Computed example of a mutant assay.
Amino acid sequence: MNRAALFDVDGTLADTNHLHVTCWWEAFRQAGHDVAMHDIHRAIGLPGEDLLAHLLGNDRDHGGDERLTAAHDTLYATWFDRLPGLDRAADLLRELDRRGWRVVLVTSASEAELTALRAAVGADDAITATASSDDVSRGKPAPDPVHHALELADAAARDAVFVGDTVWDMKAATRADVVCVGLLSGGIPRRDLEEAGARAVYRHPADLLAGLDDSPFADGSGEGGKQ
């Protein structure tokens, strides 16, 4: 039976959450919306359409959505050649691959963003597949992207572990019956991640790598973990 190591990317493998916050803030400012950076930060990890609904409400004028998203994408693209991967992220993926886990990226990033993020992480040799919100009808926190990732890995939920940095990641994994691990590298508090379903919480990829033998990755059942 295959074992699947499912990973979010922004804030989990790459130190990009605050870049997204800044780019969304500027996109909102250009469109005449006053949205606090703190609120934007808590929405990072949602697909673009859901992020706009979360921050601006469902009763907004949807006519400006495409322009807002395009503004964010244009601003964020200026960072593509220097996106920072998180310390030891590549080593973590390679070690899991060496141990027989099928590594699948589960992200809300666009194809262009994902290409830049994969270059920043620098571990394509350890990645089996990628699953994005574009591949399913509903993105995180719905379980659909996680279900799709399991299909790509040809693995059952009980034989998978999901690693992410937002409450949306934890909720998506929990709703898919997959054990989830939270990382603090995206800036979300430990308590929020635990309340959203995190079985274990680590500071960053290097911390998880150092504690891998005492983590939910120690076997395929999701037992163990650092609290």
Rank of each mutant, 00 (worst) to 15 (best):
A206N: 07
P143L: 04
D8P: 10
L19V: 10
V201E: 03
D192A: 15
I44L: 14
Q30F: 08
D97M: 07
A200H: 10
H41M: 13
R138D: 13
L152Q: 11
S108A: 15
A36W: 00
G139I: 03
G57P: 05
P141S: 07
D213R: 12
H38P: 08
R99N: 06
G85F: 05
D159K: 06
A157P: 00
V146E: 02
G63S: 15
Y76K: 07
M37V: 03
H18P: 00
G220E: 15
S185Y: 12
H72A: 03
D219T: 02
A126F: 06
G63R: 14
A43D: 03
D15C: 11
L212M: 13
Q227F: 11
D159R: 15
W101T: 09
H38Q: 13
F80M: 05
H41Q: 08
K171C: 09
V161C: 13
R82V: 04
C180I: 05
P84L: 06
I44H: 02
E26P: 05
A120S: 11
D125G: 07
A71W: 05
L46S: 01
E95M: 04
E49G: 13
D10Y: 00
E66D: 07
R99D: 09
D81Y: 06
L208W: 08
T78A: 14
G45H: 01
I40V: 05
V106E: 03
I127N: 11
V21H: 00
V167Q: 03
A71M: 12
N2R: 13
A71D: 13
D192I: 05
V103C: 14
P47I: 01
A109K: 09
V21P: 10
A218T: 14
V163A: 07
Y202I: 05
A112W: 00
D219G: 02
S185T: 13
P189H: 10
E26W: 04
G187A: 08
W101S: 06
P145Q: 06
P216W: 04
D159M: 11
A149L: 02
G186N: 01
V35T: 01
E223T: 14
E26I: 06
A198F: 03
H20G: 05
D10T: 00
T174S: 15
A89D: 07
D61S: 03
A71S: 12
T128E: 12
P189M: 06
G222F: 01
H18T: 08
G45D: 08
D124G: 15
Y202C: 10
T107Q: 13
I127T: 12
W168L: 03
L19A: 14
V106D: 08
W79A: 09
A43F: 01
H33I: 08
H204Q: 15
A119E: 12
H20S: 07
T174L: 15
P47F: 04
D219Y: 01
H18A: 10
A70Q: 14
P216I: 05
R67P: 09
D61P: 01
D39C: 01
D169C: 04
I127M: 13
S185P: 14
P189C: 09
A176N: 10
L13C: 07
T69L: 14
S133N: 10
L56Y: 05
V136I: 09
G122L: 02
M1L: 07
A36D: 09
A14H: 00
R60S: 02
G222Q: 12
L150T: 06
W24M: 08
R199Q: 02
R82W: 02
D124R: 13
L46R: 07
